[in-house]
């Protein structure tokens, strides 16, 4: 069935073309049009329901007309057209995914400008005389597969096979450690650095320079208690030492009191307080005495003032 012929016929009868200016904005990719001009507000408000229906029908017709203008392909199910890319920019639903934290090597490589080179997935295995994978199970050129090790005078270990095994284990362990360190660095790098800085400052203040091990131990102790529960409910790492909370305040013994010493301490405290509060010259008292003496006898004020100031205050006098 040739659709285009039908379409051509239909075009001759412009029934499907609404009587309005085609000033719509189309986004065929999203099957959308936007009509921002057509409303004549006075007439529109007279019969809102029908007006909206008419407008929508016309605009939908215009959109469908546009769709039919796109050249389609005939398949078993009918005519199929390929929509162009959407033009309307719609905000994304989810936040932009965070960048993966760089591993230590990736960071180093970026700084030095080292770029990854493509390597072939398979390599030639000389012993097996066939291609094999570069890594993974049954990889090519696997030294662990060798049944015989040629002694070129370099072998020092007693059992070179065992040594190879051990070396491999070591490499695996190292890799695991590196991975863990990368995770730790990415997760609490900030926290760790801050804590480290605090501890560094503290040790500097104390005039000591701590060794790396001491610093780590101290930091560990700080971090252990850095949750709301002072680390009480934290998951423990294997062999992690117990959290030691800060020491409880120690009071002087109640049952075996050293009263003499206590009294002495109290007196010391008292002396310090009185030093602050006691003013050696009680000005008001001095002035009062000065005034009284003037009233009593006619003495020159200048001489009297000196005398009264030199007197010591705080002799309780119960008289007004």
């Amino acid at each position: 069935m040739d659709v285009s012929s039908i379409l051509n016929k239909a075009e001759k009868k412009p029934l499907h073309i609404p009587e309005k200016n085609d000033d719509l904005q189309y986004d065929i990719g999203n099957l959308t049009t936007l009509d921002s001009l057509s409303i004549n507000s006075e007439e529109f408000l007279k019969d809102v329901d029908n007006n909206i229906k008419d407008l929508t029908r016309d605009n939908a017709q215009l959109l469908i007309n546009k769709l039919f203008q796109i050249e389609g392909e005939l398949t078993d199910t009918g005519v199929v057209i390929q929509l162009p890319d959407p033009t309307t920019k719609i905000p994304r639903e989810k936040p932009v995914p965070e960048e993966k934290p760089l591993t230590k090597w990736e960071k180093f490589a970026r700084e030095k400008g080292i770029k990854k080179r493509k390597k072939s997935r398979k390599v030639w295995d000389q012993n097996k005389q066939q291609w094999g994978y570069r890594s993974g199970y049954g990889k090519a050129n696997n030294e662990m597969d060798e049944v015989i090790i040629e002694d070129k005078g370099e072998i020092e270990a007693e059992d070179p096979f065992l040594q190879r095994k051990q070396n491999k284990q070591k490499r695996i362990q190292q890799q695991k450690k590196n991975e863990l360190m990368n995770i730790a660095r990415s997760k609490n790098g900030k926290v760790a650095k801050q804590t480290e800085r605090v501890i560094e400052d503290l040790s500097k203040q104390a005039g000591k320079r701590l060794t790396r091990k001491q610093r780590l131990q101290k930091m560990f102790r700080v971090v252990q208690q850095s949750t709301a529960s002072h680390g009480l409910f934290d998951k423990r790492v294997k062999n992690e030492p117990k959290v030691k909370l800060s020491k409880k305040q120690q009071f002087n013994s109640v049952t075996e009191p050293d009263l003499k010493n206590e009294t002495k301490n109290h007196l010391d405290v008292l002396d310090r307080i009185l030093d602050h509060t006691d003013v050696s010259i009680n000005l008001e008292k001095a002035i009062n005495q000065f005034k009284d003496t003037i009233d009593d006898a006619d003495i020159k004020p200048k001489q009297q003032k000196k005398k009264s100031k030199s007197r010591k205050p705080r002799k309780p006098k119960k008289k007004k």
Binding site: N282, E284, K285, N288, P313, P316, K317, K318, K319, K320
Partner: peptide, 8 residues
């Protein structure tokens, strides 16, 4: 009634 002299 009375008050100590020079009470601040």
């Amino acid at each position: 009634g009375r008050i100590t002299d020079s009470t601040p």
